[in-house]
């Protein structure tokens, strides 16, 4: 379990360094970087490589935005097993909803509670 914390730190940090390199060396905007990472996460999920990384690094792999792409694919594949090709479309948000729904709900609450700065 303590190893889990260590590897979450290392893998999570390394994924952020990759993002930083894309921004600094690849001269991408944060928007481009995050989009590219999500796409990369989806592709890794396609090759069944992201799940082992989650097993290994826990939150180090689930917290970076890459895991968004992974869980979209996971949801789509889960549903595709049951309903065939239609499931790819309908199952996409089966697993992922947490991040987006939390962002929507808390975004709305935040907008109601906090005042804009500057």
């Amino acid at each position: 379990m303590l190893g889990m914390f260590f590897w979450a730190f290392v893998i999570g940090g390394l994924i952020c360094v990759i993002g930083q390199l894309m921004m600094d060396v690849g001269k991408l905007t944060p928007g481009h970087t995050l989009s590219a990472m999500v796409v990369a996460g989806a592709v890794l999920a396609g090759f069944d490589l992201y799940e082992p990384l989650i097993d290994f690094a826990g939150a180090g792999a689930t917290i970076p935005i890459m895991s968004f792409g992974n869980s979209l694919v996971a949801g789509a594949m889960q549903e595709a097993e049951k309903h065939g090709i239609v499931g790819v479309l309908t199952g996409m948000f089966e697993v992922t909803s947490a991040g987006i729904s939390a962002a929507i709900v808390f975004g709305f609450i935040g907008a109601a509670v906090f005042k804009p700065k500057g």
Binding site: I63, I65, K115
Partner: peptide, 22 residues
Amino acid sequence: AGSAVPVSGFGNAVISAAIEHR
């Protein structure tokens, strides 16, 4: 990127836009 790549950065992008345009 250290705070932008984790999902909290995604949350920050959504929430700050929401607050800003209130």
